[in-house]
Amino acid sequence: MLREDHKRRLREEFNKKLENPVKLVVFTQEVECPFCAQTRSLIEELASLSDKIIVEVYDFVKDSEKAKFYMIDKVPAVAVVGSRDYGLRFYGLPYGYEFQTLLEAIFYASTGRTDLSEESRRRLKALKTPVRIQVFVTLTCPYCPQVASLAYKLAVESDMVRAEVVDISEFPHLAYRYAVMGVPKTVINDKVEFVGAVPEKLFIEYVMLATGSPGYIF
């Protein structure tokens, strides 16, 4: 699925940026999943470019205990796991604009570091309530990776946060449930939602609002 020149650039980027091994845990199923085979193929092709990327593949139905362990509730799914599980998930085929989102998740998981501000880190450390961030995207949306990447950063920086990026075109029932009329749309703990790209500081405020944490600006 990747051109040879793209593979060459990725090898160079992986050599420079990957510090620790990253495990890509792929969940597929044999029926009623039109993009499962493509997702598995893409992830395995990506892993062939670096010995620091490890792939595990599970069947969503047959390996239900593994799916439960990784908190996977739909397919295709990819869990990006570093020295620990930061809660980084991608649902759908991570292609188009979202291929870069997957790469950034791999780099974050490998290093365990992000470029979040010290103020954002401080506020995340104060979280007492688990946070589930869902970012609904499409593969043709140029603004979606910015929001998806920010959600992943929050998950890396806080044990209380998990971040799921979902290609909404593959899961129409979720588009209906969450009234997704435009992307990126972000839903936090099924309580707070917003559409479009927002600055880091405002994203943190939405997280605080969703958890009832003191000090939010609204």
Rank of each mutant, 00 (worst) to 15 (best):
N189G: 04
G112D: 12
A79C: 15
V147F: 07
Y206I: 04
Y176F: 07
F218Y: 15
S41M: 00
K52L: 15
S110A: 13
D73K: 09
K66I: 09
A179V: 14
D159K: 11
E4G: 02
R113E: 08
K125S: 13
A210K: 01
P145V: 14
E56A: 03
I106T: 08
G196V: 10
I54W: 00
L116D: 01
Q134E: 08
Y95N: 11
K125R: 15
D159H: 06
A155R: 04
E19N: 10
F27S: 06
V31T: 14
L46C: 01
G96S: 14
D115W: 09
V192F: 05
A79K: 15
R3C: 02
E30L: 10
I188A: 02
V81Q: 07
Q100C: 05
L18I: 14
L150G: 05
R132E: 06
M181S: 04
L124Y: 08
D63V: 03
V57L: 00
G96W: 14
I168N: 01
L93V: 14
Y176M: 08
L46T: 01
P76K: 12
F60I: 05
C141A: 11
P199Y: 11
A67K: 06
R9F: 10
E119M: 08
D85P: 04
F99N: 05
P34H: 00
G212R: 06
I168V: 15
T114P: 10
D5N: 10
K74V: 09
Y108V: 11
Q38Y: 06
D59P: 04
T129E: 15
E119S: 12
E157P: 04
R122P: 00
K191L: 13
L116M: 07
I106G: 02
G82W: 10
F203P: 04
V192L: 06
C33E: 08
V57C: 00
S169T: 13
R113N: 07
S41E: 07
N20P: 04
S169L: 12
I72L: 02
D190M: 12
Y91K: 07
Q134K: 15
A210S: 12
F14R: 09
V57K: 00
R9A: 14
F136H: 07
L46R: 00
T186Y: 00
V57R: 00
Y70K: 11
T211D: 01
M181R: 09
E157W: 10
G92D: 05
K17I: 02
L24E: 12
R40G: 01
E56D: 10
F69E: 15
E200W: 06
L93C: 12
